[in-house]
Structure formats: structure tokens, C-alpha cells
Nucleic acid binder design. Structure first.
Length: 418
RNA sequence: GGAGAAGUGGCUGAGUGGUUGAAAGCGGCACCCUGCUAAGGUGUUAUAGGGUUUAAACUCUAUCGAGGGUUCGAAUCCCUCCUUCUCCA
């Protein structure tokens, strides 16, 4: 959620910044409701103050008549207060609704554009190969990756992995977790895969993107679309001291996405599944360290790609491609030889105080002595299924898949025969 | 599933109807003291939202798990819910 004061202080500026990402803000509406709300507050509080003053007189009242008079007046005040209170609540929920709908403001260095075609390539690594060995079709004979079974027991966009592929998948998880905890100093968490709506609101999935989530019937619970949700929400309603920061967390979880609106997209392979696994990195930092932190997260993710010897590029998302809560995002895209293109495998985002306002996470600033909102960031380090698909395609000759050196101690094998 | 107990500021923890927005301690911060460190001394230290102001100071309102209720007045009494703990099955 944005700080409403920045809209009030610079309505035109914010309007044009949000326009860059295709969101048309109507500052006049917001300011109007904000002022109506203020007027109601003034009225309500004046009456409340009068009532409080009246109550103080009760002790000094000596006669029954006086006391009764005070009782009568106080009840009158109370009626007016509760009337104004309900008017105020209405205005406030109206305002909150508008505010929750507004996406984060892109940083100035984010390239302006309409969609992913306008993303800016920051760096590339490795030498891309080309061939026609699409990862899923390599397994039609041996069935180690089985989409029919996934559809049979569940539905399309679910997959069953077996044998060496299941183990390769698990080894990737282990490798990534070990790397992040042992080399990059993250604290490992194991968290619930089902969270309540308050958590979803905190990180920005709700109220706007409910159709992307799997909701559990007759409950306030949802399947997590990413470990970002439970991890970041661990700190909801916390006030920290500056010395507690930064916080680096990592967790491996399955992720569930309804993929509403992506019909027909990426129907082949494990690129877009309703359920996939991911190792997620979350940072909570002081605002002044946050941009540095974004580079750190991104390079932690890139290092995994390099260890796995998968060619990749880093792009900065354009304003049109930026996620709702993010003010700056780097995507890491793996090279897919069969598609002859780079595909997203990690998304590393900086949220400023957008999430921490919703989540109410603050820290006590050592210099200003005030409690200020922390910055939150997260990045995939990495998406397991896509990484495995990229690994398979980049390390196969159509007959075998070579397992990268760093994984061999965990897999216990160095090739998979097809 | 049944029976109890509890949820208070960054933390621990007093507080059962009227200057209690809240004692005390810890922690934090500022200053003093000491050659340095440790120890000590003094002061300060909740959040949100209004008013006012260049700003600070000041002032008002709300907040003691959440939401309702009783009352002139609620952290304190009642109800519902949530959470935690203990005991029983």
C-alpha cells in the first residue's frame, strides 16, 4: 500500500508515475474521500472530547438531579458519536479499498515500457546451444516425467516425476538450500503451505488477485502461491531494532497457482504448472540498504545458475511487466535450447515499504530515533521445476542427460540415460 | 472431544469500575562520571489518527488479543470469537 501523503503532496507526479505502468490513478477521488474522512474525524472527536469532559464532572456532582442530567447528556453524546463512527468507518473502508488497489510506484531507473518486450537486458552468462530436445518429450519413452498420470490423478498442468528425475528434482532443492544457508548466510525455514487471508493481504496477493489463488472451501485459507507469503508474514506486526536488520530467510515450499488467464500458454512441459516447487529468498532490510540487497538476492540466484552451468541473462523488468507490489524487479532467464529463447526462472523484487505498510513491519531507526517501515525484498533461488527443465535441455545430447558436478554428490549418479 | 487458566508498551510484569496510556524491572536512547573498558548516576523512551505549527512544543481522540454489550465512566464486569498454556479422555 502506498503512503497516502505522497498522493496528497504530489498528485500529478504520482499519477504520471503510475501511468508508466498502465495504472490510471484518480487522485482527486482519493483526496476527496480523504478530506471527507478528516471532517468526520473532527466531528466525532469533538463530541467525544465534550463527552469526556462531562464525565469528569460526574464525581463532583452532589445532587441526584445533577447526576441524572449528566447521564442524560452523556447518552445524547454517545448517540451522536456512534452515528458519526459508522459514517467514518464507511469512508475509511472506501478509502482503504481504493488504496489497496493501487500498485507500487516504479523506481526512476526502471525502463518504461508496455510489457516484457521492453525489458532491459542487464547481463548475459554462458554460451547458448541450439537443438530440438525439448525436455518433456525426452521422457515419453521411459516415463520419468509423466504428464498423463498427472492429469489422471489430478488434472492438466500437474505432473508426476519418477526415479532419477524425482531424485534430480529433490537434489536441486537440497543443493539450493545448502548453498543459501551455508554460503550465503540465510536462515532456513519450514513454513505452512496454507495461509489465511490476512497474510495474503499483507504481501499483496489479496484483495486484487484472488482468482490466481487456490482457496480452501468454507475457510479463510489459501494455498500459498510462493513462500514469500508465509516468510514475509512471519514478521507481520513486528517492531524491530535496527540491529536486528537485515534478515535473510530461505524456505523451500511447493507453490500453487490457478494460472487463471494463461490458457493455451506453455502447455508443453513443466514450465507452467499449477503446483511447482521453489526455493525462495526473502530479505527484510533498512530502506537505505534495500537496493544493495536486491543486487545481492539476484546474484545469489545467478550463482546457482552458474554452478549448474545453465546459460542465462538478467533483465530489468519494464514498468509494464512489473509485478503489482514491486518497484523494481530483475528476472533471471534461463536459456532453453529447444525454444531458442530465454525463459524466466527467477524473479527478484524490491518492494520498498509497499508490503511493510500492509504488514505493519517497522524498525527503530538509530539516527532519526523514529519507527519507520522496513523494506522487503524477495527472489526465487530458484524455481525447481523450471531449473530442472533448463538443466535437462542444456545438458543433453538426446541420449543422456549429464548431471552438473555440484549435484553429483547429492544425486549419486552423473548421467540419466534416456 | 471434555474441564480449567491466561492474553497489558520493544521485552518481562503490576494493575478487578473514576487523573491508569498504564507501577516496576529489563532493553533502547541522551547526557554526566571514569585515562580506556566494565560498573555507576540523571533524564528520556507505546502506536495510530485529528487540531495547531515553518518546525518543535502543545493539545485532542482512539487503542491493554479481536469484536460486541453493561455503565455517566471499562485494562478492570458480561457475551462471542481467536490464540496460548495446564489437566482429563
Amino acid at each position: 500500500m502506498l503512503n497516502i501523503n505522497i498522493i496528497i503532496n504530489d498528485p500529478k507526479g504520482i499519477e504520471s508515475k503510475l501511468m508508466k505502468r498502465g495504472y490510471s490513478l484518480n487522485p482527486a477521488d482519493i483526496i476527496d474521500i480523504y478530506n471527507q474522512r478528516k471532517d468526520l474525524i473532527k466531528i466525532k472527536e469533538t463530541i467525544a472530547a465534550n463527552k469526556n469532559k462531562l464525565n469528569d464532572k460526574f464525581k463532583d456532582a452532589s445532587t441526584e438531579d445533577e447526576k441524572n442530567e449528566i447521564k442524560k447528556q452523556s447518552q445524547e453524546f454517545e448517540k451522536k458519536i456512534s452515528h458519526n463512527k459508522s459514517l467514518l468507518e464507511e469512508k475509511e473502508s472506501e478509502l482503504t479499498k481504493l488504496m489497496l488497489d493501487i500498485p507500487n510506484i516504479p523506481l526512476d531507473d526502471v525502463p518504461v515500457g508496455e510489457d516484457d518486450k521492453d525489458n532491459k537486458i542487464i547481463k548475459t552468462w554462458g554460451s547458448p546451444k541450439r537443438h530440438n530436445f525439448e525436455h518433456s518429450s525426452l521422457f515419453t519413452k521411459n516415463g520419468l516425467l509423466n504428464f498423463e498420470l498427472g492429469a489422471k490423478i489430478s488434472k492438466t498442468r500437474f505432473v508426476v516425476m519418477k526415479g532419477q528425475i524425482a531424485k534430480l528434482h529433490r537434489s536441486l532443492v537440497s543443493y539450493m538450500l545448502n548453498q543459501h544457508t551455508e554460503v550465503n548466510n540465510y536462515i532456513e525455514y519450514n513454513v505452512p503451505y496454507v495461509v489465511n487471508s490476512e497474510s495474503m493481504r499483507g504481501t499483496g496477493q489479496l484483495p486484487k488477485f484472488e482468482e490466481d489463488l487456490f482457496k480452501i472451501n468454507d475457510s479463510d485459507l489459501y494455498l500459498i502461491p510462493t513462500a514469500e507469503v508465509p516468510l514475509t508474514n512471519l514478521y507481520r506486526d513486528k517492531i524491530m531494532i535496527e540491529n536486528d536488520l537485515p534478515v535473510y530467510m530461505v524456505a523451500h515450499t511447493p507453490c500453487f497457482r490457478s494460472e487463471a488467464g494463461s490458457y493455451g500458454k506453455d502447455t508443453k512441459g513443466i514450465i507452467r504448472q499449477h503446483q511447482f516447487e521453489k526455493v525462495e529468498l526473502v530479505h527484510i532490510t533498512c530502506p537505505q540498504d534495500a537496493e544493495k540487497s536486491l543486487d545481492m538476492i539476484t546474484s545469489h540466484a545467478e550463482k546457482i545458475m552458474e554452478d549448474l552451468e545453465i546459460p542465462y541473462q538478467r533483465v530489468m523488468l519494464s514498468t509494464g511487466d512489473l509485478g503489482f507490489s514491486s518497484c523494481k524487479t530483475y528476472d533471471i532467464e534461463a536459456w532453453f535450447p529447444s525454444q531458442e529463447c530465454y525463459r524466466e526462472i527467477s524473479s527478484c523484487s524490491y518492494f520498498g515499504d509497499f508490503q511493510s505498510r500492509r504488514l505493519n513491519i517497522k524498525y527503530k531507526n538509530n539516527v532519526t530515533k523514529r519507527k519507520e517501515y522496513v523494506s522487503t525484498l524477495n527472489g526465487s533461488g530458484l524455481a525447481i521445476g523450471r531449473t530442472m527443465a533448463a538443466l535437462i535441455e542444456n545438458h543433453t545430447d538426446g541420449k543422456i542427460i549429464k548431471i552438473p558436478k555440484v549435484l553429483q554428490p547429492i544425486t549419486g549418479f552423473d548421467i540419466i540415460k534416456l
